[in-house]
Structures are given as C-alpha cells and as structure tokens.
C-alpha cells in the first residue's frame, strides 16, 4: 500500500515491502486463501450458533433465578429462632415433670390425702 510519502527512506521501504507482498509464492497464497475462506465461513457459523447459544444462556439464567428464589422462599426464616436440640430436650423434661406431678396429685386424691378437701381437723 504505497501512499504519497515525503520521506524517501519511508517510500523506499514501503516499495520493498509492497514488492515482497506481491511476490508471495503460490503455496503461501493458497494457504492464505484457505484461511480467509475458513474465516468467512466462520461468520455464518457464528451467526447461526450465536442465537441458539444466547437463547440457551437466557433460559439457563432464568432457571437459575427461579431456583434461587425458590430456595430463598422455602428456607428456614431465621435459624436463630428455631429451637435447638437442647431446648427441645428441656421442653420434654418439663413435660415429664408435669405428668409426674399430675400422677402424684391423682394418687393423693385416691389415698384420701387431699389437704383442704379432707377437712384438716386432726
């Protein structure tokens, strides 16, 4: 590509390079042409594959968002408010003590040791 150049050195080098580009051998030119055709074919391939890829990518993104939201919505509200195993065990122990007390009062009633109901006059 020779342009109007003022510098003779630049002009001479450009001419030599032009000559070098013009004298490329047939094999090299064939390989260049093959590379160019491959690139041109790649344009069509890229256009064909890009749209499905973009569609698939969009669907994958939407699915990820839905999955993420569902996980968030169904996750425990706040782990700190959930009873811990120790608390559950303490509650169970409280229940056992309550039943033991009820059983004790029922026995007192059957044995006639009900305090105030039995008078209290000794």
């Amino acid at each position: 590509m020779t342009n109007t150049r003022k510098d003779p050195l630049e002009q001479r080098i450009a001419e030599l390079l032009d000559d070098r580009a013009a004298r490329l051998d047939e094999l090299t030119l064939a390989r260049l042409g093959a590379a160019r055709r491959r690139a041109a074919a790649h344009v069509g391939w890229a256009a064909r594959i890009r749209r499905p890829l973009q569609t698939a990518g969009g669907l994958a993104l939407a699915a990820s968002v839905v999955l993420g939201l569902s996980v968030l919505l169904h996750a425990p509200k706040d782990p700190a408010t959930q009873p811990s195993p120790d608390e559950i065990e303490a509650l169970a122990e409280d229940d056992v003590e309550l039943f033991e007390k009820l059983e004790f009062f029922r026995w007192l009633d059957e044995e006639g040791h009900g305090g105030e109901s039995n008078g209290g006059s000794a």
Binding site: A21, L24, A35
Partner: peptide
C-alpha cells in the same frame, strides 16, 4: 464485504 476486506489485507498482514 468481509471477504474482500480480508483478501485485500491478507498479504500485507502476512508480511
């Protein structure tokens, strides 16, 4: 188009 552009630039690009 693109093919003509590449054809026009390929030799200088190679050099």
């Amino acid at each position: 188009g693109l093919d003509a552009f590449l054809a026009g630039v390929e030799r200088r690009a190679l050099v």
